[in-house]
């Protein structure tokens, strides 16, 4: 099977010329369909930078990044925008739109699919919210939801389009351990049902057990880890 993520010889630096500061150094990583991979590492080691490069949120500088069949090095703006709509993002902050209800926030992702009818979108958004346990909160605005509930809306938004790849950056950082655990289990269950691949950055040791593979990053480089199926390429 084609890997969902295939990164080879990726380098990235911030700043230009003599001030250029290398942040990612010779990253090689392949992730197979259906894999749940956890990326850990100290703060400032380059995890977020790697995730934003993989998501097409930042332009790649050097090396090869193949995500869902799209080569990102030298990709056009249009190609990047198209790729983004095929990836589910879960951020550390929930990043919901304050002016929209839970259902409307979730349908923002569905509105990018012109083939869906209004009714289809309503059905899918409410079903997804029910799946994350918020069937009774579909018409609530973020202001009236707890932190855990907001993050679950964000997960619903990321998963409702059934993306093949989910990128999550410390999704439990703003949550207490109980709801953090719930949120991650939810992601795991939905990923299994939808057959999607997850790359999850976390510091939270209590959730490492959901991963098929754990990789560790330090000073911009990927290190081998002690996880059971560790397979750093």
């Amino acid at each position: 099977m084609e890997p969902v993520v295939n990164i080879q010889g990726l380098h990235h630096a911030f700043g230009k010329g003599a001030l250029a500061k290398p942040v990612l150094i010779d990253i090689n990583l392949a992730i197979q369909p259906g894999e749940i991979v956890i990326l850990t590492g100290p703060s400032g080691s380059g995890k977020t930078t790697l995730l934003s490069l993989m998501g097409g949120l930042r332009s790649a500088q050097q090396g090869s990044l193949n995500i869902l069949g799209q080569e990102l090095l030298g990709a056009s703006k249009k190609q990047l925008v198209e790729l983004r709509s095929r990836i589910g993002y879960i951020f550390q902050a929930h990043n919901l739109l304050d002016c929209l209800t839970a259902q409307e926030n979730v349908r923002m992702a569905l509105r990018l699919q012109p083939t869906l009818s209004y009714g289809d979108r309503t059905a899918q958004a409410t079903a997804m919210l029910a799946a994350v346990g918020l069937g009774h909160r579909v018409n609530y605005r973020p202001d009236n939801l707890s932190g855990g509930q907001k993050q679950r809306v964000a997960i619903a938004r990321a998963l409702v389009t059934q993306p093949k790849l989910i990128l999550a950056d410390e999704p439990t950082a703003a949550l207490d351990s109980q709801s953090g655990r719930e949120v991650v289990q939810l992601m795991q269950r939905l990923a299994r049902e939808q057959g999607c691949t997850i790359l999850l950055v976390t510091h939270d040791n209590r959730i490492l057990d959901i991963a098929h593979r754990i990789i560790h990053m330090e000073d911009g480089q990927l290190l081998r880890t002690g996880s059971p199926t560790a397979a750093v390429v």
């Binding site: 925008v81 983004r84 709509s85 951020f91 990043n95």
Partner: peptide, 15 residues
């Protein structure tokens, strides 16, 4: 005031 919201929309695929 909504820069982060607009950035989020860009991130999830809005042009």
């Amino acid at each position: 005031d909504h820069l982060s919201e607009y950035a989020t929309l860009k991130a999830i695929g809005y042009s």
